[in-house]
Design a protein around this nucleic acid. Sequence first.
DNA 1: AATCACCTACCTACTGATAGGTAATTTATA
DNA 2: TATAAATTACCTATCAGTAGGTAGGTGATT
Lengths: 172, 172
Amino acid sequence: MTKKAALLKAAENKVRLGGYSNFSFRELANEIGIKSASVHYHFPTKADLGAELAHQYTDNFIAMLGEPQAHKANGKNPLDIYTQLFKNALVIDKKMCLCGLLGAESDSLPDKVRDEVKRFFIKNLAWLTQAHKINGEPDPERAAIQTVSLLEGAMMISNTLDDIHYFEQATF
Amino acid sequence: MTKKAALLKAAENKVRLGGYSNFSFRELANEIGIKSASVHYHFPTKADLGAELAHQYTDNFIAMLGEPQAHKANGKNPLDIYTQLFKNALVIDKKMCLCGLLGAESDSLPDKVRDEVKRFFIKNLAWLTQAHKINGEPDPERAAIQTVSLLEGAMMISNTLDDIHYFEQATF
DNA sequence: AATCACCTACCTACTGATAGGTAATTTATA
DNA sequence: TATAAATTACCTATCAGTAGGTAGGTGATT
């Protein structure tokens, strides 16, 4: 893994635990074994790092989702795939959704970071709208916002109360 | 308003925009016209201030909700009251729910602050469980966690995308 | 006399960021 | 092919600013 990738990985872990201000160039540098000044070589400013992190997180998340049509063709409900991806983030990583956390504090984020967080939700809503349409929902746009809201909220509360049961109860 | 109350008010505004790390003793002091060292007279540490803020926010929120039974007796659905309180926070204050934001970053919070955030959700779930029970829901506990998850999530996404329409679409 | 509600002055630790330097590698030119 | 130029990926050293927190002092109120 390149140093740049290692920096993004370390930053993701920190942000998913405590938000944008929960990581510093020094901490990141120490963790991967370089100096804090060298982090600026890869990312001119902290906002650049945050924006690239959110962008990459979004792309990866959408890629993991696959195509709703493909799931349906395989006899699976695309919404189950979506729910499972959220649950994995919570159970395996034991952390919040990166953009769920950044979204909550989006008012205080640098513009370019906030823009990437918006992009995450726009892309998620598009995917979910498609999924609900395939499922024959009469109002797929509404169902989409309800699905992502429920999952993000359940994730946050389950994480806060430190009990996966809340997430499971909310989503099944 | 006492200086202490003014400090809590100023802190609430900051936290609801950017989380626990979005306020400092210096900023708070400047805003209300005292020195940062004097803030320590009212709150020994930042964690003490954060915990008292979350505690007071919770008490106020629950008090605003009133009793589910009383609403039902007045011919109103307690869940509409609950939804309206969330919507007001978003539309009037144009800010996130304090504990929604703190919950998202709860992993990095001081213990006493996190405990108060937990208390917020425990109290909310109790109120909602009661409300759903009154409404004749077959599984009031599940309905309660679903309600608060949906509202917290919709609030976060509406705030992020800066469009109240998402909240309305998710909740009506 | 004690308590309250502040104050000045200060501390250590950490923040993101910059300037300027270096060895190793890669690319362009003669 | 040999040499020169440029680029990469770091480094040391340092900066101004901000963080939370502390010691000790002051005038007003109780």
